[in-house]
Amino acid sequence: MTDQLRSYLPIIIPLAIIEVGLMVAALIHIFSHKKYRFGNRWVWVVISVLFNLIGPILYFAVGRGETQDDE
């Protein structure tokens, strides 16, 4: 079983890095901004943490507020 698990490592590690990286990037952005296009801070935190990959993408694509007026 450990051998089998080890054979997955070269593939799981990069995937985890991308997913966690995106999630952290989204969380940093969420906590450093006050305004969102819709929804509030906690809605976006939950979405970004619960939905791998798609959550942070949704946040950056549609949830993120305008950069100029709240930075």
């Binding site: 995106l22 993408i57 950056f60 993120r64 950069t67």
Partner: peptide, 25 residues
């Protein structure tokens, strides 16, 4: 600036990794 390109790149690289992983799993 709007992170659009970065999101796309991250998502597609992830999908590229995911495909062989799912096939193997």
């Amino acid at each position: 600036r709007t992170y659009r390109a970065l999101i796309m790149i991250a998502a597609f690289v992830a999908l590229g990794v995911l495909s062989p992983l799912l096939a193997k799993m």
